[in-house]
Structure formats: structure tokens, C-alpha cells
């Protein structure tokens, strides 16, 4: 399931080596940040969530079984669950204190991204969290169907269904926005 080098690093992490953990940070931080960044559309929140992902991994490292799941899949699963919690919290806050209609957009989106990228970003943010996550995992993070389904806690069939509906919605929005 895992390559020999990664297995050695994981064994050292499970034994509590913080040096091995730093190695994992070097290897996976960028990828986890990209996933969370695309999910939240907010760099600051994405930094916090990516940070929390690795801290949670370290704290509950004894629950990780490298024979059953790849490390990157496990980390993405933690990140995904944190994103879901984040969206729930935000929904609750928005119910308590109504915010302006463009709340889906992050404050930094327009400054950081090119116009066309911002349009795609905005379109992605209109999807449900699960549809967005499915597309980000398969299209941008290049996960196989099996691994993406594992991260989302779904069957491959359910993942396909999410992807199809998500892509169909994106197609409609982007056709209008980019023409």
C-alpha cells in the first residue's frame, strides 16, 4: 500500500518521532493546502484548516493504519472532515448574523486569482460541498475513484453520481460566465 521510504517515515511517526513528522509536513503541506484552498476559496481559512489537519493527524496517529490506506488519502480525509465542520460552523454563523449576499466569495479571491480563474472558482463555490469536494479530489488532486470515494466516505457509484451532477452544473454556469 505504501512505498518503503514512506513506510519507514510513518513507522517513525507512529513511534512519536517529530523529525519524521516534519518530513511528512515537507511532503504533504502544499497538497493539503491546495485542496483546502480550493474547497474554502479563502487562503487564511485554508491555512488554519491545513494546520489543523496535520495537528489532528499527529494527535490521533495511532488510529492510522498504513496497510489499509495511503497517508495522502488519510490526510485528505481529515482535511475533508475539517472542511465540512468549517462549512457547518459558517452556516450557523450566517444564520445567527446574516451576511451580505457575496459571502461565498473570499476577500482575497479577486486579488489573488486571474479573472478567468476567479470565474471558475466562483462557479465551483456554487456547487454543494460534496460535489465540489468530489471534483477537486478527482480533477485537481488527481485521486483515483477508489481513493476519492474513500476520502468522502462514499461508494464509487455515489462518487460518480456526485461528479456527474457537479460537472453538469459547472458546465451550465461556465458556459454563461466565460462566453
Amino acid at each position: 500500500m505504501v512505498e518503503e521510504d514512506e513506510r519507514q517515515i510513518i513507522e517513525r511517526i507512529l513511534a512519536g518521532s517529530d523529525l519524521a513528522f516534519r518530513k511528512i509536513l515537507d511532503l504533504h503541506t502544499q497538497r493539503i493546502f491546495n485542496y483546502v484552498r480550493r474547497m474554502t476559496s479563502n487562503s487564511i481559512e485554508a491555512e488554519d484548516l491545513a494546520q489543523e489537519t496535520f495537528i489532528r493527524f499527529w494527535v490521533s496517529r495511532d488510529r492510522f493504519d498504513p496497510d489499509r490506506v495511503k497517508l495522502t488519502t488519510w490526510l485528505h480525509r481529515i482535511a475533508h472532515n475539517l472542511c465540512i465542520d468549517y462549512f457547518r460552523r459558517r452556516q450557523l454563523q450566517e444564520r445567527q448574523v446574516p451576511v451580505q449576499s457575496d459571502s461565498q466569495d473570499s476577500p482575497d479571491t479577486d486579488y489573488e486569482l486571474s479573472i478567468r480563474a476567479a470565474v471558475v472558482n466562483k462557479a465551483l463555490m456554487t456547487l454543494s460541498e460534496r460535489q465540489r469536494s468530489a471534483i477537486v479530489l478527482c480533477h485537481y488532486q488527481n485521486f483515483s475513484q477508489h481513493d476519492a470515494a474513500h476520502i468522502l466516505g462514499l461508494s464509487v457509484h455515489a462518487l460518480e453520481s456526485l461528479l456527474r451532477r457537479g460537472r453538469s452544473k459547472l458546465k451550465q454556469i461556465l458556459a454563461e460566465e466565460l462566453e
Binding site: 509536513l25 503541506t29 493546502f33 491546495n34 484552498r37 491555512e47 486571474s114 470565474v119 465551483l124 485537481y140
Partner: peptide, 21 residues
């Protein structure tokens, strides 16, 4: 269209995440 959504350079963000951890 999806390929247009490239993320900006996030080296600083990655460093901040690592420092925070």
C-alpha cells in the same frame, strides 16, 4: 475551463502552516 483555476504561488502560506504546526 477547470484548468483555468490555477492557484497562486502559495509558498508563504505553506511556510506559515509549517511554522504554526
Amino acid at each position: 475551463h477547470l484548468a483555468l483555476f490555477e492557484l497562486p504561488n502559495s509558498e508563504l502560506s505553506v511556510r506559515r502552516i509549517e511554522m504554526g504546526i
